[in-house]
């Protein structure tokens, strides 16, 4: 769990310090990341490390300029800071649990989101496999929009509403249908589109195109029957969540701004809330000491991972010997 609210709004201080010291805001973020660097010392940085650092600070600067200062603070330090967990047993065992930025387009957190979403949505596909229906198949649908050369928040919300309305029109009177939609842009391209995995009866491509055009004003659609297993189809769909869609910091920053407070993955019909309330957050908390079983308490505040490693504090994930269903998502 990430408790970013406990942090001070540092981005404002960074901006004023950057002016005072005669460096850019971007460089101020870099300095913060480097002077408290993670395990890898600056002298051992390779080209990839420099590229990653410049990329993350570039995104942070963009987010700061666009009023998302809190996100800007989190992004460059994703998984570099951690919470200290201390058990209440006699030995007072200590562990650290990294704090993640949880931004949608972070390459570290994207993979975590992928794992979480897969665990959440896989049960509905198992259900479908065990309960086949006459005429129903898993179908892949792609709905696209015109490329405007940029994306604003309203474009996203309008698009989501159009997808929902299109599916509702197409499935009017049909019972037991369901769908999961993932919003995506092409790599380094502003072409917003939705990949949809739908459990539904046959839909004619022409009819789909007509409905999509009348609802959204956009033209291009594509539909096919899914011939691979539901598991593979879901993996294929969600892979878009796991990868950042750009290597340009400004584009990642703009996407974060556009998607702010909006989900990338949406469920409809049977797929909606199939697994009940999300328990990922609860199950990912460490409640018991993995060494002695005593109650585990989180010490208030964040510390840097390298400092805790220096003190010999162990990463709690290393203590995980057995992963149970759903609990494997941290």
């Amino acid at each position: 769990m990430t408790d970013w609210d406990a942090l001070q709004p540092r981005h404002q201080r960074y901006e004023s310090e950057a002016i005072e010291w005669g460096i850019s805001t971007n460089e101020r973020f870099e300095l913060e990341a480097l002077c408290r660097s993670n395990l890898k010392p600056l002298e051992k940085f390779d080209d990839d490390d420099w590229v990653d650092l410049a990329f993350r600070t570039g995104v942070a600067e963009f987010l700061t300029e666009n009023g998302l200062g809190k996100k800007a603070e989190r992004y460059p330090f994703c998984s570099r800071q951690a919470f200290l967990l201390r058990c209440k047993g006699n030995d007072r065992h200590e562990f650290f649990s990294p704090s993640y930025c949880d931004l949608r387009f972070c390459k570290i957190c994207g993979k975590r989101q992928f794992a979480r979403l897969f665990a959440k949505h896989f049960p509905v596909l198992e259900f479908i496999q065990k309960n086949p229906r006459r005429g129903f198949r898993l179908r892949k649908i792609t709905l696209t929009s015109r490329n405007k050369g940029t994306l604003e928040h309203e474009d996203i919300t309008d698009f989501i509403a159009a997808v929902k309305e299109t599916l509702n029109i197409l499935m009017e009177g049909v019972e037991g249908w369901g769908a999961i939609a993932v919003l995506e842009v092409a790599f380094n391209n502003w072409n917003l589109h939705a990949h949809i995995l739908a459990w539904c009866p046959y839909i004619e491509q022409k009819h789909l195109a007509e409905v999509w055009r009348s609802v959204s004003g956009h033209k291009v659609v594509w539909i096919s029957e899914e011939r691979i297993s539901g598991r593979k189809a879901l993996l294929y769909m969600l892979k878009y969540v796991s990868k950042p869609p750009s290597d340009k910091p400004e584009m990642i920053g703009q996407l974060e701004v556009a998607f702010h407070k909006t989900r990338r993955v949406h469920c409809y019909g049977l797929f909606y809330n199939f697994s009940g309330n999300e328990t990922d957050g609860e199950n990912s908390k460490w409640m018991e000491c993995p060494k002695c079983g005593a109650e585990l308490k989180r010490v208030k505040g964040l510390q840097y991972v390298y400092q805790m490693r220096r003190r010999g504090v162990q990463f709690i994930g290393d203590c995980r010997t057995e992963r149970k269903s759903k609990q494997w998502v941290n």
Binding site: R13, E17, E20, W21, L31, E32, C35, R36, Q307
Partner: peptide
């Protein structure tokens, strides 16, 4: 100067 553990930030 790099900040000491727990310090706010670097010192110019």
């Amino acid at each position: 100067r790099n900040p000491a553990s727990g310090a706010e930030g670097p010192t110019y």
